[in-house]
Design a protein around this nucleic acid. Structure first.
Length: 428
RNA sequence: GGAGGGAUGGCUGAGCGGUUGAAAGCACCGGUCUUGAAAACCGGCGUAUCGAGAGGUACCCAGGGUUCGAAUCCCUGUCCCUCCGCCA
């Protein structure tokens, strides 16, 4: 959520900033509601003040009236009238306030000034590349064929068990998948200073509102059908960022850095026909997520560091990648700036997203009421939140399979993963 | 699943239906004292929102209700604790 005060005082500035994101701020509607709100609030509050003052005076007045043997009913009647008038004014105010909240909670975050203009992913800008795509002297296979040949990656069985967009891994591929998770968790916790955290995979709607998935993007989520209204998490970002919902942190606790491995569940509504082959786009996949809570002044630098932490994993695995900055039109709802890291896939002869690292500034924190006490002001102030994949495990697995494949269909295990594979050097 | 108890400011913890936005302690901030620190003493210290300010309003888990008036009474929900049962 944007700062309502800022939206109120500088609607044109905000509207201009949102143009780059392809969002049209309805300044007219906001102004109308705001004028109405101010008027109703003034009215309601003065009535409340009157009602409160009267109620306070009543105790004594009634005692005196009784002592004189007078009728108390007229005194009560006036209180009753005040109560009714107050109630009406409050209802009217609440109604307008709700309309304002509803509208504001649907307005996306404003992008950083450095975010390039553009309508779609075609306008994203590459900012660096690492590694040289390997030159193969044989015809490369994709991970689906490689996995099938090994007999260790099986989409048909997953379809039988559940449906499309699921996978079954067996044996050494399942172990390699697990090895990647361990490797990522260890690297981030031991070398990059993140605390490992394990969280629920189901969350309530308050948590989803806090990180911005609700109310606008419910169709992307799996919702459980019982009366508790839980959802399966689409990313660890949701439970981990909500660790500090409604909390006030001490300055000396900052920065907070969490690394978390979870499965992620996405309905992928609206992506019919996209990436239907293989593990690229699944309803269930695993991810190691990095989440940070920082002081506002540190957020810009933190995004660079966090993106670097994710890139380190690819470097250690020896997988070529490039890093791009998303243009305004491709930027997510809650993000002010996002870097995507894309890994080279030989079977597709192009780079594919494997991590997304974002700075949300105080947009999520305002929804979450996640704050810190600034020693300089002594006041609670909003934190800044950031997160990034470090990395998407399924996509990393297929990148390893494809980039490390041999002519005979076997797969060489990258050096850094061999300790997690009992010293094994190749599969198949 | 059964039976009880509870939810109050950063933390602990008092609160009779009206004078309680809320005692007290801790923590924290400022000051006195001290070479410095500690101790002691004095003062300050919830959050949000409206207002230039004075000040107003809302909030004592959440949502309803009773009442002229609710942190306090009633109902529903959520969460926590204790005991019994069941169970990975």
């Amino acid at each position: 959520m944007l700062d309502p005060k800022l939206v109120r005082s500088e609607p044109q500035t905000i509207a201009a900033a949102l143009v780059i994101k392809g969002f049209t701020l309805d300044v007219e509607k906001l102004n109308q509601l705001e004028v109405l709100r101010r008027d109703l609030q003034e009215k309601a509050q003065s009535l409340q003040a009157e009602r409160n003052a009267y109620a306070k005076s009543m105790g004594k007045a009634m005692g005196e009236a009784k002592a004189r043997g007078e009728d108390i009913e007229p005194l009560k009647a006036k209180g009753e009238a005040l109560k009714l008038a107050c109630g009406e004014a409050e209802d009217a105010l609440n109604d307008v306030q709700r309309q304002l909240d509803e509208y504001l909670s649907g307005v996306p975050n404003t992008p950083d000034p450095e975010v390039p203009a553009g309508a779609s992913e075609d306008d994203n800008v590459e900012i660096r590349r690492w590694g040289e795509p390997r030159v193969f002297d044989f015809e490369v296979k994709d991970h689906v064929d490689l996995g099938a040949q090994l007999g260790l990656l099986d989409f048909e069985t997953a379809t039988k068990i559940t449906g499309s967009r699921f996978a079954v891994m067996r044996g050494e591929i399942a172990r390699l998948h697990r090895a990647l998770i361990q490797f990522m968790l260890n690297t981030h916790s031991q070398e990059h200073g993140y605390q490992e955290i394990n969280v629920p995979y189901m969350v309530n709607s308050d948590s989803l509102f806090g990180t911005g998935q609700l109310p606008k993007f419910e169709e992307d989520l799996f919702k459980l059908s019982d009366e508790r209204n839980f959802y399966l998490i689409p990313t660890a970002e949701v439970p981990v960022t909500n660790v500090y919902r409604d909390e006030i942190l001490d300055a000396n606790q900052l920065p907070v850095k969490f690394v978390c491995h979870t499965p992620c569940f996405r309905s992928e509504a609206g992506s019919y026909g996209k990436d239907t082959r293989g593990m690229i786009r699944q309803h269930q996949f695993e991810k190691v997520e990095l989440v940070q809570f920082v002081k506002p002044e540190d957020a810009t630098e933190t995004l660079e560091q966090l993106t670097g932490h994710a890139e380190t994993i690819l470097q250690k695995l020896g997988l070529p990648y490039r890093t791009i900055i998303l243009c305004g039109g491709d930027l997510g709802f809650s993000a002010a700036r996002t870097y995507d890291i894309e890994v080279w896939l030989p079977s597709q002869q192009r780079y594919r997203e494997i991590s997304s690292c974002s700075n949300f500034r105080d947009f999520q924190a305002r929804r979450l009421k996640a704050r810190w006490r600034n020693p300089e002001t002594g006041k609670p102030e909003l934190l800044n939140t950031l997160n990034g994949s470090g990395l998407a495990v399924g996509r990393t697995l297929l990148a390893v399979m494809e980039n490390y494949q041999q002519a005979d269909g076997s797969i060489v295990i990258p050096d850094v993963l061999q300790p997690y594979m009992g010293g094994q050097r190749s599969i198949g």
